[in-house]
Nucleic acid binder design. Structure first.
Lengths: 218, 218
DNA sequence: CTAGATCAAATAATCGATTATTACTAGAAA
DNA sequence: TTTCTAGTAATAATCGATTATTTGATCTAG
């Protein structure tokens, strides 16, 4: 969906899709909230058709729930779903990292170092939205050369889902530090081509970030 | 997406979504073909808005590719993607079946037997579209109680993707028999609660159906 | 009071017409 | 002939207005 934006002329529908997606990840709209189409039109200053097309895409992607004749709602948050998402991320990102470590080339190594550098430089002063983006890019860079388009697609999708939970979590400083340290370790293991241990670590990493998110999940 | 249809009043957009999805799986439109919106309108006798909303959903779901200002195209078929889809199905359905065998209750056992019975009864005389549906239902029934909403979601999505390849494959009779026999074996292993061997068999099953599909994939 | 029916207001879905962009064709220059 | 350009036809995207459905308030019967 993202490539569509980059390639030259974006349509209104594509633009509003990206903006809405980001706002949903940022928690701008509450869990379970009904999205009034008229209100959205006003807020984002867009026409009805492109807005509805964007909402339809978001529903198919899993960030909104569409009820016929009753419009669109933000998805609810639940402990059960967080557990589900976390377990799926463990499985899929674990597998993907294993493959990436085996297949990644020199270009990948540089990209990974760069992504980690940018993430490390961004301290607690950077706005959280910006940090989230760097964090996403780092994780993307990690698994990018796994060789499976569908695996990457599912991972991104789950990452978006997970972000909704991360966003409502308080920023626990001690755990945050531990997570940052794991990012560095992940790079080290990746460059050392230790796929076994890299996989084990990212699974641990995902479990830990789930625990952070859980602290705020009712 | 399917539940939306069942729950009372379906909208035009939801109806046309389901019809288009089925037609895409049935191979009514060729791989890579551009879908003319005006033509679709005429073919399905629907208005522009609901049609475009359905197309947007299908693109987000991965059955169409959307190019800004250039409309919608059917996705191409490729050996590489078939290999990707097959490997993902092996991993995910394998895992799901393992969990289902561990968690499934008596109700599941009956559903499974029923689904298998219906599939077995439908011989080579039944139209292929109908057989495909029974086959899908059987595989759904197998993994249904795995306990993970996201796992089931990804499996369905991959199943739809795979169906596009299966649809263009010639019906090789010997292999077909072998696949049918595996369905029975899967039921037996499931009822015997042998999750290890059930998983191994479904992985083999998926690989075999991939080979059937490959025979026709350029 | 409570449950059910009825109507009015709100709003989701759809339609028809318009605008913007791309694709195609023909003609001119190299 | 080939390659560019201009103009035109085709069509994708968007807008504004209309229709259909749901929601919520009010009223009535039990």
């Amino acid at each position: 969906m993202n490539e569509a934006l980059k390639q030259g002329s974006a349509t209104t529908a594509s633009r509003i899709y990206e903006v809405l997606r980001q706002d949903l990840l940022d928690g701008r709209y509450g869990a379970g909230e009904r999205l009034s189409i008229a209100l959205l039109r006003e807020t984002y200053q867009v026409g009805l058709s492109p807005l509805r097309e964007a909402l339809n895409r978001l529903a198919a992607y899993g960030l909104l729930r569409q009820e016929n004749q009753r419009g669109f709602r933000v998805l609810e948050l639940s402990r059960d779903e967080l557990a589900d998402i976390t377990e799926m991320r463990r499985q899929l990102e674990g597998k993907a990292l294993e493959l990436a470590v085996e297949h990644g080339d020199e270009e990948w190594e540089s990209q990974l170092l760069a992504a980690n550098h940018r993430l490390t430089k961004a301290g607690s002063h950077t706005p959280i939205v910006e940090w989230e983006q760097l964090h996403s890019r780092f994780h993307n860079a990690l698994v990018a050369p796994c060789g499976s388009v569908w695996l990457l697609r599912f991972i991104s999708q789950l990452h978006d889902q997970f972000d909704r939970y991360r966003r409502v979590a308080p920023r626990a400083q001690e755990l945050r530090h531990q997570l940052d340290a794991q990012h560095q370790e992940l790079v080290d293991l990746a460059l050392a081509r230790d796929s076994r241990r890299a996989r084990a670590l990212i699974e641990e990493h995902i479990t830990l970030s789930c625990e952070v998110a859980l602290k705020s999940c009712r």
